[in-house]
């Protein structure tokens, strides 16, 4: 699979609900349309929350990686 080019990394480890989506919704405004954020979180709820947030806000989850209690979500700003 093609390597995802990350434009901004957000370390959200240890932050519980609602902080991951609150921070990412702010952070996505700091990248250009088409650029990618890598959000690193330890909140298991993020697996359901980020896709819900992306659908509602019109952005795109490119990939989700899990391992060692850390979840990495790659989000492309679509608008």
């Amino acid at each position: 699979m093609e390597e995802i080019k990350v434009d901004k990394v957000m370390d959200l480890k240890g932050l519980p609900c609602p902080m991951p989506v609150v921070k990412v919704s702010k952070g996505i405004k700091e990248v250009q349309v088409g650029q990618v954020i890598e959000a690193i979180t330890t909140d298991p709820g993020a697996l359901a929350d980020f896709p819900a947030w992306a659908r509602t806000s019109g952005n795109e989850i490119l990939k989700t990686d899990q391992g060692d209690g850390v979840i990495k979500i790659y989000i492309k700003r679509d608008k």
């Binding site: 609900c17 989506v21 609150v22 990412v24 947030w53 509602t56 806000s57």
Partner: peptide, 11 residues
């Protein structure tokens, strides 16, 4: 407040 702040994130 969790719902309020989350709702802002959801647009």
């Amino acid at each position: 407040f969790v719902i309020a702040t989350g709702a802002v994130a959801m647009g």
